[in-house]
Design a protein around this nucleic acid. Structure first.
Lengths: 213, 213
DNA sequence: AATAAGTCGTGACAAATTTCACAAGTAGTA
DNA sequence: TACTACTTGTGAAATTTGTCACGACTTATT
């Protein structure tokens, strides 16, 4: 299932490449060079060529890459044909933003259900996704392997434990809490406050002049 | 202004350390070892010690680190005493989430104003932050150096240009668009769709067993 | 005082990632 | 066909980041 030779740094950029290739195709472009792509995604062109090369020789010298071919290749590589079901826990503003986001456009993931405690929300739908009471988590979440956590930090540990018990394998954690999970479960943390603070720190201590992010 | 010896990877972790040290202090803890901290923030203890060591010898052998001392040190280092004013562009769900977030608790940043186009929102406040019409951007944003972009991707380039013209120096970009700015302006991209796709990719291709994130 | 247990700071190494720079090949043109 | 301009794929070097492992010192205990 895994050609486990691709560096993690490369793997993180793949979804980005995929989306921009999609854009290019919609624009009717049939070929693209690493230089053009570089300007679009803000990644060094040599890095892009290196990234692609892990999958083999996908381009042609003097020509560049064929958009459709590359796109087809990435679709397979990123398992874009296979749907991954996702559950969203916590329908606050951030959670609602996710529900409105149309993930299906370029995507292989679908938020299948959401959970909250607010009586106003339970029983309704947002963006076509039904919202259930968190008490129903155990009975409804069967089969879902990925969860997005957009709840208050104070709830994070408790909910995480319940998710783990139900066999979740990946968690996208937006709470400031650093949750603890068994080692076979993958957690990606996105901490909005840290991101903002970090940006401010870089502004003050790493003034830019020629380099770019 | 910058002791420019600190690796970027370290710099990114500083706000995280800072917050957990704050938590510890609120819990009344006076000392902490790199091992304890490691368990809390999920960063290898050797990495933590190395990170701290870039700032000098902050700890004591056989004892650990004094929470208050360390906290005071980080407060200075992260310029927690100096307030950075932030403008938020786009008061959708994601933007609203930011406005509700109480950044002032452990933080040196304050969202001073927000902009949108919806007549329902303009003139109101959310989380104490006034919302203005985007047309008033130029006249109101003076002095603000950092902007959070939570608008549709299609607006990103246009708004970015206006922000740049008004002398912004840092942008936290939540739109899927990879915006283009002059090289002296720092942009951090956070792409929610990419984050989710990326997590799914890792789940499928990099099964965990003992290692952890 | 002596001993044991704990912890830092860091030299040295290892791993991961990025970048340079160029040979080799392709496309386009005349 | 011959020539020019372009672009890939990659060996090699550089840079960045993470980890190991241990000497040196501190605290606590007996």
């Amino acid at each position: 299932m895994a050609q486990n030779k691709i560096p993690q740094a490369t793997a993180k950029r793949l979804p980005l490449y995929y989306r921009f290739l999609n854009n290019l195709q919609h624009q009717g472009k049939t070929r693209v060079s690493s230089k053009e792509l570089s300007e679009a995604v803000k990644v060094d062109s040599a890095t892009i060529r290196r990234d692609f090369s892990y999958f083999g020789a996908l381009g042609k010298k003097g020509y560049g890459y064929n958009v459709e071919y590359l796109l087809g290749f990435f679709r397979k590589t990123l398992d874009q044909d296979e749907l991954t079901e996702v559950a969203l826990i916590g329908v606050g503003n951030l959670g609602t933003a996710f529900l409105h986001y149309n993930f299906m456009k370029n995507n292989n993931t679908k938020i299948q259900m959401a959970f909250d405690t607010s009586p106003d929300k339970i029983g309704t739908e947002i963006g076509g996704v039904p919202i259930y009471h968190i008490d129903e988590l155990e009975e409804r979440i069967n089969g879902v392997k990925v969860a997005i956590l957009t709840i208050p930090a104070s709830e994070a540990d408790k909910i995480t434990e319940r998710l783990v018990d139900k066999g979740i394998t990946g968690i996208l954690n937006f709470t400031p809490a650093r949750i603890t999970v068994p080692s076979h479960i993958r957690v990606h943390h996105i901490d909005l406050a840290v991101e903002l603070q970090s940006l401010v720190y870089f502004l003050k201590h790493y003034p830019l002049d020629k380099e770019n992010d």
